[in-house]
Amino acid sequence: MRGQVDSQLAGFIFIFVCLLIIGGVVAGNTIALGDDFNYKPLDAAILNAQVQKCLSLHDISKISSDFYATCGINESIIKKYYRIKICDTVECIGSKGIFSTEGDFEICGITGINKNSNYPSCSTSQILISSKKYTIITVSSQDVRRGL
């Protein structure tokens, strides 16, 4: 019994030491070469600019009824990595909006969210169309995917 406990303890210690070494190598490499550039704030800002452009070029009713075809944006990619909300009010996070994808927009109310690369990034803008103010919120959660 004692031997079995000792063997299990040795296994745990071994795994712990392995994880410690992996963590140390990754941390050391990150300190020496720098962390990856956080692409998400720029990605969210580009999407926001594209939605702004679409709002200024097309009719609002057409956008709210057929957003993806009108704005030339790929629906499946948006549903996978992005969130978009368009409101005809200044306060947009909590409101229903004239167009909204599924997902949480509450995170955009957190100060400094774009500085943390572990969280999705937000971009908020306002645009004046026919003397009416529209608020656009875009969220990006897309990271560079590494694979074989």
Binding site: N74, S76, Y81, Q142
Partner: peptide
Amino acid sequence: SNELCISLSTSGKNCLSYFNNV
């Protein structure tokens, strides 16, 4: 799949998706 990949080594590639429908 609206995906763009860059392969600079034989051991892996970096991929991102573009939302523009082009």
